[in-house]
Amino acid sequence: MKKEHNHMKNKKFGMCIDLDKCTGCGSCMVACMSENNVPFREDETDKRKSITWITVYKITNNRPFPDTEVCYMPRPCMHCEGHDGHSPCVSVCPATATDYDMATGIVSQIYTRCFGCRYCMGACPYHARYFNWWDPVWPAEMEKYLSPDVSPRMRGVVEKCNFCYSRYQRALDKAYCEGRSDIEEDEYQTACTQGCPAGAITFGDLNNKSHAVYKLKKSPNAFRLLERLGTNPKVYYLSSKEWVRKAGDNYIKGENPKNIKKSHH
């Protein structure tokens, strides 16, 4: 078969989220749930048991009234590359249920392989991984809206954002049928990117100079979460506010974020 296709250049899908634009409306979370067959329960107010692959954090500058400032921070899976693909979660999974794909830069989670040890959840500092504490139940006739592109998860396994990989698959299929071997930037966008009313999320190949994310990640306002840990995430944030950029990492009192050498990859 066609070996030449297989040396397609490695992609590195990533995201840039403009926090100045993000309004905290929550559409990304719901778009994701709807796209990815995420179940819901009667009481979802225990946020530590509530599955939302992308979660919008509300962060504040912790200053008293009226100097209080608030910023919303949507947090999908960061798809950490770590060092050579050894993201915090991938290397700890005992059953190889989660993996880093060098061809896409996407951290996969295979629900049918996972047996629910939850070690990966402990390893992830972003809390991007969710456990199915309950059997998924869709009341009334809601099973009808389930998408066949994403398999519903059984209880007792971990799940997380996969950058809507099923959309990538569909885009590729279309390209193949049209005789192309690769896709355009706009053919593969995640559900949260597409749904965001503010246009705050940009998604694309971080390796591809023609993609919007390539430029955005180099903005002086760009930062990533917990870069100092060496997780090497693929989600970039943009904020014009210094306190927001500083909240992305931990600093010892007196440390100047600008002087910190962050592990760069």
Binding site: A95, A97, C114, F115, G116, C117, N132, G156, V157
Partner: peptide
């Protein structure tokens, strides 16, 4: 473990 019947996967 969440899925004891699969624990042999380890």
């Amino acid at each position: 473990v969440g899925q004891p019947l699969r624990s042999w996967f380890i």
